[in-house]
């Protein structure tokens, strides 16, 4: 009996010590970890909007570059800009707008949706004309290395650059990842990009969620386009 009691007491003490130690560590480091995650998101937004640099960014550089150039806009489902407070969070979307010298240089929106093995997360950037693609990036996905994971590679991402989101009538058609290669003679070529061979589901998944995510922002971008049109007249 004595030894049983000892075993229980010993185990309890060890558990308490380890538990306290772990909670203390986790708690003291939590703030830094959250900051790291935020910086990582900011880094992704900056890179999809075309900010580049030879050397890797330091945390301070990311922070200052982001603060100086990126403006977060929150819009509601009809595309009106809203204040962050006092509105239903679920119905509001965030746009990251980059500008230099008070001139808008691009918009980035978060995109996410099912690939083959899980949710893919990334950002999609649009030129100030609100119809030309500026870039796309993924920061988290679980696609098969060598196949679906190619979405992360430059050759695939670069295919998006310069494609058109809207047709001649100014309606949103989004971008489709097709099976195989886009032919030059295809009249819809500006709305299509080459697929990844062997990763059809990743591609169709991307096509689907890209379109549905773009639709959420369409009311806002439609307004941007009509303003641009008036200004150009």
């Amino acid at each position: 009996m004595r030894s049983d009691l000892y075993t229980i007491a010993f185990t309890t003490i060890i558990t308490v010590i380890l538990g306290l130690g772990l909670s203390a560590t986790a708690d003291s480091l939590r703030e830094r970890q959250v900051l790291n995650e935020e910086l990582d998101i900011k880094k992704n937004i900056l890179s999809v909007l075309g900010y580049k640099q030879e050397t890797p960014w330091t945390n301070e550089e990311v922070q200052s570059l982001y603060d100086a150039n990126i403006n977060e806009i929150r819009i509601d489902e009809v595309g009106s800009i809203i204040d962050e407070l006092g509105k239903n969070e679920d119905l509001s979307y965030t746009i990251y707008q980059s500008s230099e010298n008070n001139k808008v240089t691009g918009y980035a929106i978060p995109i996410a949706g099912k690939g083959l093995w899980g949710t893919m997360y990334g950002y999609f950037a649009i030129e100030p004309d609100a119809e030309t693609v500026k870039g796309i990036t993924f920061y988290k996905h679980k696609e098969t290395p060598g196949l679906g994971a190619e979405v992360d590679k430059d050759w695939f991402k670069n295919n998006f650059v310069g494609k058109k989101l809207t047709n001649k009538n100014g309606e949103l058609v989004s971008i489709e990842v097709i099976k195989g290669y886009v032919s030059d003679t295809d009249p819809d070529a500006p709305h299509k990009v080459d697929g990844i061979s062997g990763a059809t589901i990743t591609g169709t998944g991307l096509t689907t969620f890209l379109k549905s995510d773009l639709q959420k922002y369409e009311p806002y971008f439609a307004k941007v386009r009509s303003v641009n049109q008036i200004e150009s007249l």
């Binding site: 560590t25 986790a26 480091l29 830094r32 970890q33 790291n36 995650e37 910086l39 990582d40």
Partner: peptide
Amino acid sequence: QVLKAYMY
């Protein structure tokens, strides 16, 4: 935890 905080 340390890696997540200092070498994200």
